[in-house]
């Protein structure tokens, strides 16, 4: 096959570029420890969330020293609980599901970003440092009121924080 030497050079360089991209992502996954949302959260009966031990009561609960779990329901067109209160300097694992259609869960301006699919439970773990407030936006179209679907995460100073549900 008659291939010009420049084309051969470019072929090799292009493959190196591709390998470089894959290596960067692998570095992020291993050395930095970025984990992908996966099937670890398990499944749930979307029409019976009120009978489910995890989601019957959307809440934030303490599970260890500085470790918390947040059970969140995304539904047309709210997040529950809202706001989600967590303490500063904590590790929070979010379990998020939907009783109706597909939603999105993005803590605005951050890398905490997942799809929410009825029947599936999305599980993401995030570290919160300083007190502050973040918006949450549903980033997947979920019906005619989609643009009103928002929530918030309030990171409270550790001494002010009380675990529990909304209000």
């Amino acid at each position: 096959m008659n291939i010009h030497s420049y084309e051969k050079i470019w072929l090799v360089v292009a493959i190196l570029l591709i390998v470089g991209f894959i290596s960067t992502v692998t570095y992020g996954a291993t050395a930095v420890g970025i984990d992908m949302v996966d099937d670890e959260g398990g499944t749930v009966n979307a029409s019976a969330l009120d009978e489910d031990p995890r989601f019957s009561e959307p809440r934030v609960e303490q599970v260890g020293d500085n470790e918390y779990e947040a059970y969140v329901i995304a539904q047309q067109y709210i997040f529950n609980p809202d706001p989600i209160r967590v303490p500063a300097n904590s590790t929070v694992t979010f379990f998020i599901t939907s009783p109706d259609v597909i939603h999105g869960f993005e803590i605005v301006g951050t890398n905490a970003n997942t799809m929410v699919i009825p029947g599936q439970v999305a599980k993401i773990t995030v570290n919160f440092n300083d007190p502050g407030e973040y918006g949450i936006v549903c980033h997947e179209y979920c019906g005619s009121g989609h643009h009103t679907m928002e929530g918030s995460v309030v990171v409270q100073p550790e001494d002010e924080f009380e675990p529990g549900g909304d209000e």
């Binding site: 301006g109 407030e133 918006g135 936006v137 980033h139 179209y141 929530g151």
Partner: peptide
């Protein structure tokens, strides 16, 4: 990159602002 979602009718939300 500032976190503005796609597929939404409104440029802004009530509870927070895009920075």
């Amino acid at each position: 990159l500032f976190g503005v979602p796609r597929r939404t009718a409104e440029p802004q939300y009530e509870g927070f602002e895009f920075v």
